[in-house]
Design a protein around this nucleic acid. Structure first.
Length: 292
DNA sequence: AACGTGGACAACCGCCTTGAC
DNA sequence: TGTCAAGGCGGTTGTCCACGT
């Protein structure tokens, strides 16, 4: 872990929100060089941030494959269930939710799900397991029975095919009729990663895409590929492990880079309205299905 | 229209773990 | 084997924005 070869110039690190320009610099740098040493990234990328901040920004916001916006019913149930079993092990919980970060899961829990669970417990004061949780476990059991893909209480490792499962669930959640009503009232955010044509990347970079093609998430399983392929789902076949970390094949990333645009640069009125099939920026094309 | 309030989310802080030296 | 620095993670805080008064 330690990287003593890294230079550590004393810098007055910038704090606070990241500007689009900073995002651009960080993304450009990582796409070209990877991040073998986070402490070196800000220096080499020309950022007045510390390495930790860069890492966090990349993982939580810039990393390809991230899914933003409203949690689906299935995702919500997984969070509730795993939180009940694991406690606040957000990174572990996030492993079961492809495209979600621990920070996002944590925020969602703290701002919404926790209250929901407490409320459910309040309305069902008898028994530790609330009706909602019972339902959750039941649903998860059903998933497991049918797909054998949902984390069991015995194995808290990310299930090999959980992306496929989530993919199915998420696909289901995309159906208008099943769209979950939550307290969220924001329009879905669209990130640069969301319109990344990942299948193209995977196909072109098979085996060389930062090891992505050999991850359990998408290896040896055509179902995963089928489910996660743009057009059928919304996330790319990546786990929440550091995506693209330490890669060296810049050819692929040139391709990626050409497709990326930072979210901060998206005109506010240019969001693709999934539900009304409304406006879509011409530059985006339809090869991104990741709206949420 | 102005102000206050609360929710959502981004980012920071601090601790722990890991690995190089 | 001990020390140190980077990475990882969970808790907390800060900021922005929508909504109500």
């Amino acid at each position: 872990m330690g990287c003593r070869s890294c230079e550590k110039p004393k810098v007055n690190y910038r704090k606070g929100l990241w500007s689009p320009e900073e995002d651009q610099k960080l993304r450009d740098y990582i796409l070209e060089h990877g991040h073998s040493c986070w402490s070196a990234v800000p220096v080499k990328a020309g950022l007045q941030r510390n390495g930790k901040s860069c890492r966090l920004r990349w993982i939580n916001y810039l990393r390809p494959g991230l899914k933003r916006g409203i949690f689906s019913q299935e995702e919500e149930e997984i969070v509730i269930n795993l939180q009940a079993r694991l406690g606040n092990k957000w990174s572990q919980i996030a492993m079961h939710l492809p495209g979600r970060t621990d920070n996002e899961v944590k925020n969602y829990w703290n701002s919404y799900l926790k209250k929901k669970v407490i409320k459910a417990q309040g309305s069902h004061p008898h028994g530790s397991a609330t009706k909602s949780l019972e339902l959750t476990n039941k649903n998860l059991l059903n998933h497991k029975e049918t797909n054998n893909q949902i984390p069991s209480s015995q194995s808290l490792e990310p299930p090999e095919l959980s992306t496929a499962d989530s993919g199915l669930s998420l696909k289901h959640s995309m159906e208008f009729g099943s769209f979950k009503g939550t307290t969220h009232h924001h329009l879905p955010k669209v990130l640069f990663a969301d319109w990344l044509s990942v299948d193209q990347v995977i196909e072109q970079g098979s085996g060389s895409f930062g090891g992505a093609a050999s991850t359990p998430w998408n290896s040896n399983n055509s179902n995963v590929d089928e489910v996660l392929r743009p057009g059928s789902s919304e996330v790319i076949g990546q786990s929440n492990s550091d995506f693209l970390s330490g890669f060296g094949d810049t050819g692929i990333y040139d391709e990626l880079q050409a497709q990326f645009e930072p979210v901060g640069q998206i005109p506010g009125d240019a969001f693709f309205d999934l539900f009304t099939m409304g406006k879509i920026p011409g530059s985006l094309g339809m090869n991104h299905d990741a709206i949420f």
